[in-house]
């Protein structure tokens, strides 16, 4: 039988506000969770234990947190600080991963807070049926994340390679448009030659564009191939938003960011599917990156979303 803690606990904290000194932070909802699995974790507020709070036939994984540090303004300020955001996200994840190791677990979003345990119970009880449905779906399954990146090009851009070698004039006229200016004073033959290289330039630009489009299409096709392969192993899949190039950095353009819900114990199939697409001729222009197994974060959103993609 799962032990649940009903009282707020002996940690009425150093909140200055008096009455509502603590709020209840909810990490997740689980079924028959093990209190010992989370008891020692720091959670979001070291000092107060992470505990299970029963509601109906399920448990919420909760922690008392100082209300002053989790008020709207305080939270916004902290979470817009990257270091603090990372700390909170990892603390959140650590608790969820610990519970999920021993019981089917529905993660709640970062910073789900209520004024107290009673508010948690009241709110979650309304969704009890939905939680059960989600738990049914994710029990015994894990999530794998797969991202596909276009390999970075190594060739120079068209502008560079197509530049007509500049005449070394004493004035040091810059390249490009002024090349045509320099042709004024030159012979008709030279002008024709500039015209020819102008056409050649345009052709090269056009060629480069076509090559880029071809590569883009090939990348998208490769991403589709990866997605198909993984869907073959998964019971559900979902497309996440692709990351901006500013985030992916050296890895190049992200073509696919997807999550797959896979039965536990099928790591080998996942690995094989990935290996297979990696070696497929269609996928030579892309990098495939895999993370996991995750708690099925991406598959707790209700029925509609995981049908995507």
């Amino acid at each position: 039988m799962t032990q649940t803690v009903d009282e707020p606990g002996p940690h009425q904290r150093r909140g200055q506000g008096g009455a509502a000194a603590t709020a209840t932070y909810v990490f997740a909802v689980c079924r028959d969770g093990d209190p010992a699995a989370v008891a020692g974790l720091p959670g979001q507020a070291p000092g107060a234990p992470v505990r299970l709070l029963r509601f109906g036939s399920l448990e919420a994984v909760v922690q008392d947190v100082p209300a002053a540090e989790f008020g709207q303004e305080a939270l916004r300020e902290r979470l817009t600080d990257r270091t603090e955001l990372e700390r909170c996200a990892r603390a959140h994840h650590a608790v969820i991963a610990a519970v999920a190791a021993g019981a089917p677990t529905v993660p709640l979003p970062l910073a789900t807070l209520y004024l107290g345990d009673e508010r948690v119970r009241a709110a979650l009880r309304e969704d009890e049926r939905r939680f059960h449905a989600v738990l049914e779906r994710i029990a015994g399954r894990v999530e794998w994340g797969v991202k596909v990146y276009a390999r970075r090009e190594t060739t120079g851009g068209p502008g560079r390679s197509a530049t007509v070698a500049p005449a070394r004039t004493p004035a040091g006229a810059p390249e490009g448009p002024s090349a045509a200016g320099a042709a004024h004073a030159a012979t008709p033959g030279a002008a024709r030659s500039v015209g020819r290289s102008g056409r050649a330039y345009l052709e090269r630009v056009r060629g480069a564009r076509q090559e880029r489009e071809r590569r883009q299409q090939a990348g998208l096709d490769a991403a589709e191939a990866v997605d198909r392969a993984l869907r073959g192993v998964a019971v559900a899949s979902r497309r996440l938003r692709t990351h901006d190039t500013a985030l992916t950095g050296e890895r190049g353009t992200q073509l696919l960011n997807a999550a797959y819900l896979v039965a536990e114990g099928r790591e080998r199939e996942v690995a094989e599917a990935v290996e297979e697409v990696r070696s497929a001729p269609a996928c030579q222009g892309v990098e495939v990156e895999v993370t996991g197994p995750w708690v099925p974060y991406s598959f707790v959103d209700g029925g509609g979303l995981d049908a995507r993609g």
Binding site: L108, L110, D127, R241, N257, Y297, S298, V300
Partner: peptide, 13 residues
């Protein structure tokens, strides 16, 4: 991680 703890999750109430 942020993809998961922020953009997904059960929408409670």
């Amino acid at each position: 991680l942020l993809d998961r703890v922020l953009a997904t999750g059960v929408v409670v109430s």
